[in-house]
């Protein structure tokens, strides 16, 4: 696979996960609003809302868009020192800025993935409004951090594009 195909493919995955993250926000908005209104109007509640929001939607919203946020340089950094001041050393540093987090998120993916896997194998059930399968609650985290890891590796290999920063602001 050539380089730009890799970039495009990764971007497609990132955008798909991001769309899921946005859907989670839409679901949170809808569920909480309807729940509050139902209680006020009819003294009824959507019983699964709280557990579903807390265990499934929030982690999904937090994790699934991680790689996309990294792609648009949405994570805050000190923009004080310019790496170009440092000459060739700056280029090394720019790669390190992606390589070290890649290592960290690879570990995070591995550990949280193992954790989700164990919950699947043990068939961990959270007895709530319904019997929630816990592996499904944990799953979005290794998925989100896994794709972020790939994004960071790709960025490490292709070097930093410093000028692309802070698009998210």
């Amino acid at each position: 696979m050539n380089n730009s195909a890799l970039h495009r493919g990764l971007a497609v995955v990132e955008d798909a996960l991001h769309a899921l993250g946005c859907t989670a926000l839409g679901a949170v908005l809808l569920l909480i609003t309807v729940d509050a209104l139902l209680r006020f109007v009819a003294n009824e509640t959507i019983e699964f809302q709280f557990e579903f929001t807390e265990m499934y939607l929030m982690p999904a919203m937090a994790a699934l868009s991680l790689a996309r946020v990294q792609r648009v340089r949405g994570h805050l950094a000190i923009e004080f020192v310019s790496l170009s001041w440092l000459g060739p050393f700056g280029a090394v540093l720019a790669r390190l800025n992606h390589a070290l987090p890649a290592l960290f998120f690879a570990l995070l993916t591995w550990q949280s993935g193992k954790y989700a896997w164990a919950a699947w194998v043990r068939d961990d059930i959270f007895m709530g409004t319904i019997d929630w399968p816990m592996y499904a609650a944990y799953l979005s985290i290794p998925v989100g951090t896994g794709v972020l890891t790939i994004r960071l590796i790709v960025d490490t290999l292709s070097g930093d594009r410093e000028q692309e920063q802070q698009q998210a602001h």
Binding site: V28, T53, P59, A62
Partner: peptide, 17 residues
């Protein structure tokens, strides 16, 4: 081992909504 539950525990909180 701290990384196992790190993200889930910090984000699975209704108050963050």
């Amino acid at each position: 081992s701290i990384l196992e539950r790190l993200v889930f525990e910090s984000t699975s909180a209704f108050i963050l909504v």
